[in-house]
Nucleic acid binder design. Structure first.
Lengths: 347, 347
DNA sequence: GCGTTCAAGCAAAACGATTTGCAAAAGGTA
DNA sequence: TACCTTTTGCAAATCGTTTTGCTTGAACGC
């Protein structure tokens, strides 16, 4: 015969299945001595509750999904992967520590391939406006939590990526060098771009400078950014600093600068958002923002769980994003002795 | 009332639940016209089969796990993450295209935290000898497929990482420059280290050179490697090339070389294994091996599925690993015009 | 007209747990 | 003793499928 069931265990212990169930779940009191006997016996005969049966009965799936709204395979590639995967790793750890597992969901191609998915809730990373992923889960009655506000969906709970603060951090830094600052964001309408553009517009308004902001299709990746940046820098040679939140775009800008013979940071100061491998290992290393993605991921898991009414651990407050200054943006007059000059030591 | 069940659908269609079930599964013939009516009606009333019930009945979980035997959070950190996550992304895509989902499993801390996991099978990435992860799944009767042979577990199916070929590729390249080649591997007993060490020993035997091989605890990460490499290079100043399969160790070696004033590649040639961000973006970019991890991941998923008797897609043959020569190992006499000199263009 | 076969569909038994309502025993009070 | 309350445990219903026999009715050969 197969694996022992709760019935086998009950028979062995000389009690009913109800009692066994209660002994494990604690939903009702059972005589401590009885419980101990049951537990010992369970261990002995190797009983383990059947999750599939539990799930049918309770209606819980015991797992959540982590979804990127951006294709894995698309050009933004390894870098974007870094962002998502840093979240994935932390989310997996948190989820498992809460007793649920985490499914990594690739972008939905043919819509029905996601049918297989069976989850209690989903964490969607930086959705764009009208993101089909959101509809997919909404349709199925799956709880959603976003990382980064979902544009146009104020009904959805989210963990704040603090994009406004991040934007101001970067812009404060770049504008401080008395530079003529340009902006390169993504074409997709993600909240972080929207807030970045708003902060930039506010800055421009304040200083009376002339705005130089362009958008690039994320799918073009590094190369599209390099081409666009080259055109931009030719057209507007007075630009002396660029805020480029997408790190793949930022390295593209580095290529463009090299092609144009403009040194970074002496002739062009540069800063990006996600402080990943790419920013850290670029030449020169890129000024970036530590978004505390591990905390963000953990908070997202806990927020989702709270919405599921499960483990009501109160999501703790998030630390504000912090600027990590690296050589790519040190003001040209000053020496390279800014904090964390090499950007590699803490990798 | 809640979501429509198969019973509701059967009633609506004026047939029995059996017929509905057969209409969807195709296990028995149903009148084409009846089937069409059922399908249309299903669409109309919004019926979707309950996965939990299906799973209880069929005994399939509909998902597989991807497990790293190495802690996420441990010092090897972002780099190791790259390796695992590159596999995770590709595996997720393949798995979903086969109609099953993929759970990302963090390392097991307290053993029971993994209890929540409910999968049909597990892919374990580069297990070490006596890896507890393997026992965990074996105990539970979960099918296992490894990426990279599991040392001491010849019973387990695996997707070959072709570590022997990889080792020879790297060693051929380094020895070709008439260099005095040293080796730095990891202390853990993973198959790739074992095969690398064997290939190195064979080389030494052949050439009559004196061996200089050390092992470093993976948990020490980049810094431990830097310290060990510095000691090694001081003790054996004649070493003119280092084979360092772990990329985090390789960048550590770069630091050590810098500290000792040895230029790479002029004074010290260097090559690593995993061709990730780290290798590509290092200064100078590191010679590495393209392991075709995306194919490996896909093959692992298909192999696992084959063992589950599910989608018996024959795993296609794997492409051999290919050397990607970068400036870190170009022989000192030659110019830097080896193929792919900058290592960034194809990122 | 009689057996045989086949197609199409149905009723009911699993799958293995949780949960509800009820019963027996135990203790407390009047 | 009678009555009420609490504790402890049980039997049976339930979750929504899949799957196994079993019934029809029709087609077929003879």
């Amino acid at each position: 015969m197969g694996k022992p069931t709760i019935t086998d265990l009950a028979r062995a212990a000389g009690v009913s299945v109800t009692t066994v169930s209660h002994a494990f779940s604690g939903r009702r009191h059972v005589e401590p001595e009885t419980r101990r006997r049951i537990e010992a016996l369970a261990e002995e005969i190797g009983y383990r509750p059947n999750h599939r049966a539990q799930r049918l009965r309770t209606g819980r799936a015991g797992s959540i999904a982590l979804v990127s709204s951006m294709p894995f395979a698309v050009a933004a590639g390894p870098s974007r992967l870094g962002f998502l995967m840093e979240i994935a790793a932390a989310a997996a750890v948190t989820a498992f520590s809460r007793g649920i597992s985490l499914c990594l969901v690739p972008p939905l191609g043919p819509r029905d391939s996601l049918e297989a998915l069976e989850v209690d809730g989903a964490i969607v990373v930086e959705p764009e406006r009208d993101d089909p992923v959101l509809d997919f889960f909404s349709d199925r009655g799956v709880n959603i939590v976003c990382i980064g506000r979902a544009p146009g969906r104020d009904d959805l709970p989210f963990v704040d990526l603090q994009s406004g603060a991040t934007a101001r951090l970067l812009l404060d830094h770049l504008f401080s060098g008395n530079s003529n600052v340009g902006l390169i964001t993504g074409q997709q309408r993600r909240n972080s771009y929207i807030e970045m553009e708003a902060a930039y517009a506010a800055r421009i308004e304040e200083t009376g400078a002339s705005p130089t902001a362009i958008r690039i299709d994320e799918n073009g990746g590094e190369q599209a950014a390099a081409e666009a940046a080259e055109r931009l820098l030719r057209a507007e040679p007075s630009i002396s600093a660029l805020c480029v939140p997408v790190d793949a775009f930022a390295t593209g800008v580095l290529d463009a600068a090299r092609a144009l013979g403009r040194r970074v940071p002496e002739d062009l100061r540069l800063a990006t958002r996600y402080d990943g491998m790419r920013a850290k290992l670029a030449t020169p290393p890129l000024t970036a923002v530590d978004l505390h993605l591990d905390h963000v991921a953990a908070a997202a898991v806990d927020l989702l769980l709270a919405h599921l009414g499960d483990g009501a651990t109160t999501p703790q407050a998030l630390a504000p994003p912090t600027l990590v200054v690296r050589p790519s943006s040190t003001a040209s007059k000053r020496s390279n002795s800014a904090r964390s000059p090499d950007g590699r030591s803490r990798a």
